[in-house]
Amino acid sequence: MDPIRERPVLDVSGLPTVMFGKANTTWLANLLYMMIEGTMFALVVASYFYLRTRSSSWPPGNLPPTLGWGITSGAIFLISLVPARYAQRVAPSGDRSKIRWGLLALAGVAVIAMVVRGFELANLNCRWNENAYASTVWALLGLHTGHLITEFIETVVILCVSFTDKMEGTRLADVAINSDYWYFVVVTAILSDFVIYGTTRFL
């Protein structure tokens, strides 16, 4: 057999090296990560409802969490959608200045969200070690707070990168994907608050 012969070649050299949106593999990884974390939320919520079936009153002997902080928290998260969406929209353009402003605004709102979350936790009107109800409420909000903090740190890191000349190519796609994860944080925030404040009042 002649070891050197012509082979037909599928030439992919003209293909791009950066993709935005769902064609990007990091987007897929982000989606899978949301599935993992989403399942964790779903299971904590399911545990919460399960434990409620084992109790005749809910909350069992505690005051319900203070509604005002829950509403404030939800409002802050809804507001945060604006800078998140803005950063996502301007990322493909590569305009570093706009990206910086978007990420800075997002990080700022995240700081406010964390402060509000601190007050929210302090006004749950129960301590995590009192009973199963308290433990589960703290677990749900604690789980979310963990996501909030890690997402904030990630936003800050990308913000720092945006001040260097490495903010190009795939990093632009990362900005957009970061906003996707922020939406996840917002949705889980609203749902968690709805479950906690709703089931202790009208559900």
């Binding site: 904590v44 069992p60 995590w128 009192e130 199963a132 109800y133 433990s135 677990a139």
Partner: peptide, 29 residues
């Protein structure tokens, strides 16, 4: 996997920070 992470974390929290997920006398199960 998230399910076992949730439950093992609940066990760990019951053991380290006194949560009551599994204590029937205070609503756990």
């Amino acid at each position: 996997m998230p399910s076992v992470m949730v439950v093992s974390s609940m066990l760990l929290m019951d053991r380290t920070i006194n949560t009551q997920f599994f204590n029937p006398s205070v609503g756990g199960d």
